[in-house]
Design a protein around this nucleic acid. Structure first.
Lengths: 211, 211
DNA sequence: AAAAAAATGGAGTCACAACTACAAAACCCA
DNA sequence: TGGGTTTTGTAGTTGTGACTCCATTTTTTT
């Protein structure tokens, strides 16, 4: 699940330091390409060029394309959660939630990362055809949801969250707002909907909290 | 834009009644397949089989695959908006908004339509590679947003909406909640997140309205 | 330093799916 | 009913991209 040290190639061989570097470079370039163009229209040859390796490496390390896609999924989950988990770990106020929102907005603003959420995008493209891809992505979403929920519970413990707001539901609402806002970001090429969506939820929170 | 009567084949020929029937059958079957499996992994041959036509028909009516995809996009936009527009046209109370929510939930509950929103799915798959596909989908989302916004404005006019809720932002928030909830529906294979997300927004509304 | 193990390059195979050509059939209007 | 147009079926062709093979180089281990 984690981007933990890779120890094996597809055929079960140990990897040397150089092998691990190559492995990681391939995954990282493949992830970038698949995010930009989608999985289906990213050819192995594109990955070769981007990572500066030849065809046989990719098959040596990942077996068939599915294996590479799995590795990309894990990579993207870790990459996304690596941004959110630390921010949500110290969720002690509405301001902290706003800081979280600002990070999300800054990532997707100004024409950067306009293909939405890497995890959401992979979910849309793969959840049907590749059952285990869906399972991996779901595990990622569950961790994300959990981080949000724990953060909200911490806020409640500090009295920063009104009683009528349910941390479980609100965590899902925030997650859905991010995902939906980013779907609309793909269509619109701006973050207006994402912003409106997150602000509406946060305002709601404040509205309740103030009274 | 509308599923208005099709009058021409790809090469500009008039269509007879029978031709139009075939045209529509192809679009409709293609839309169903592309929703289930995604655009990239739907082969023309699959569409042939599903629609009971042979290869030449599809190319006769739509030119290359892109043309069929465009037609599918229009079809799905009309299909989705055909559900939402009437429900949102008479948005006179929170109860009406709940009825809208219930329709959405019923469409995606019990294992049906677990591939998310047809428009959202197409957006994720196509928005980057096919610029005009994105434009069509954006136009669809704009109409959807507009329907929501007009509905909310009507609610406000009736005094059913608190002043502090901005119809523009709230419309986008609802739209994002649907899209995000449905992305999570694809991963989770249940509507829990969709439900939580819509309920959180509606509760927010009520919470404000009551005071 | 030499043997073993791992990593790499490049050329080649192969299946599949988009797309075409053309002739036959069905249809529509006079 | 007949002639022109629209619609359909069959049998291709072609380009592409996943995947393989094997010889060579580099790295690790003893």
């Amino acid at each position: 699940m984690a981007t933990a040290p890779v120890v094996e190639s597809a055929s079960g061989q140990r990897l040397t330091r150089k092998g691990q570097q190559t492995y990681r470079r391939i995954v990282s370039e493949a992830a970038a390409l698949m995010y930009e163009r989608g999985v289906a229209s990213t050819r192995i040859e594109d990955v070769q060029t981007a990572a500066g390796v030849s065809a046989s490496q990719i098959y040596y390390y990942f077996g068939e394309k599915d294996g590479l896609v799995r590795a990309v999924i894990d990579h993207q989950c870790e990459s996304v959660l690596g941004v959110h988990t630390p921010l949500l770990a110290n969720l002690d106020s509405v301001e902290a939630l706003e800081a979280w929102r600002d990070v999300i907005l800054s990532i997707h603003r100004d024409g950067r990362n306009q293909q939405g959420c890497p995890m959401g995008r992979l979910t849309s493209e793969l959840s049907r055809s590749a059952p285990e891809a869906r399972a991996d992505l779901l595990a990622g979403f569950n961790r994300w949801e959990e981080a949000l929920r724990d953060g909200l519970r911490a806020m409640r413990a500090r009295g920063e969250l009104p009683d009528r707001v349910d941390p479980e539901s609100f965590a899902l609402a925030l997650l859905a707002a991010v995902q939906g806002g980013l779907v609309l970001t793909q269509a619109r090429r701006d973050t207006v909907a994402l912003e409106a969506s997150l602000n509406t939820l946060i305002d709601c929170l404040r509205g309740h909290a103030d009274h």
